[in-house]
Design a protein around this nucleic acid. Structure first.
Length: 195
DNA sequence: TGCCCGATTAACT
DNA sequence: GTTAATCGGGCAA
């Protein structure tokens, strides 16, 4: 039986939490699967929403770790983040893709697709499949509708540049499972492994 | 107050 | 490869 992730798990550097999330299981109302792609955003990072200081949108990032930060992207998609580090650090991990395992019929229905590979391979797609919306912003990750379980066994992790940003685009803070076919995009050939 | 642009996606040419 | 959809934040005026 996998171990549930506690708030302590998130009370560490985003650069430790992000790779540790690869292979972990995320369920929202029982629907979800194994995380295969995340990105780290640190408060000292110009690409982070928290970089410019607190605002109504990013307030949750400035709160304690172990909570969901959900924001609207491009006016039409939702993106899910996990707040990390001690309160006030305003750092978070963006959940970019997962391998669908639980609740496939619900995900297919919500996405209007049957291709498993496209159900959750991107932050906006994942939120649509798991029905994550602004209503989840600020909710604790250790209570319903969220369920998080630590990974079991070994996972080969690769790191590379983050996607869709222009500021600090060179920082290799995107983490993923090597070779997963559920990634939103493949990683560049250069690779480092871990865990 | 107005304008530009973004941690995106799907449907085009 | 390019572009529309769609809207809130941040900054200039």
């Amino acid at each position: 039986m996998p171990k549930r992730l506690t708030k302590g798990f998130f009370n560490r550097s985003v650069h430790e939490v992000a790779p540790d999330l690869i292979g972990a299981t995320l369920l929202v109302d029982g629907v979800g699967g194994r995380l295969v792609e995340v990105e780290a955003y640190h408060h000292t990072d110009p690409a982070a929403h928290s970089f410019g200081g607190p605002s109504a949108r990013n307030a949750v990032m400035f709160g304690p770790p172990g909570y969901a930060y959900v924001y609207r992207s491009y006016g039409l998609h939702w993106c899910l983040n996990f707040v990390c580090e001690p309160k006030g650090s305003a750092s978070a991990v963006l959940i970019r893709a997962l391998e669908p395992n639980e609740g496939l019929p619900a995900m297919r229905r919500r996405r209007g697709l049957t291709d498993e590979r496209l159900l959750c391979s991107g932050p906006g797609r994942l939120c649509e499949a798991l029905r994550v919306t602004g209503a989840h912003n600020g909710l604790p990750l250790n209570a319903p509708p969220f369920e998080l379980f630590a990974r079991q066994g070994e996972v080969e992790i690769v790191a590379g540049p983050r996607i869709g940003i222009t500021k600090a685009a060179d920082r290799p803070w995107r983490y993923g499972e090597r070779g997963s076919r559920f990634l939103s995009k493949p990683f560049p050939a250069a690779a480092k492994s871990g865990a």
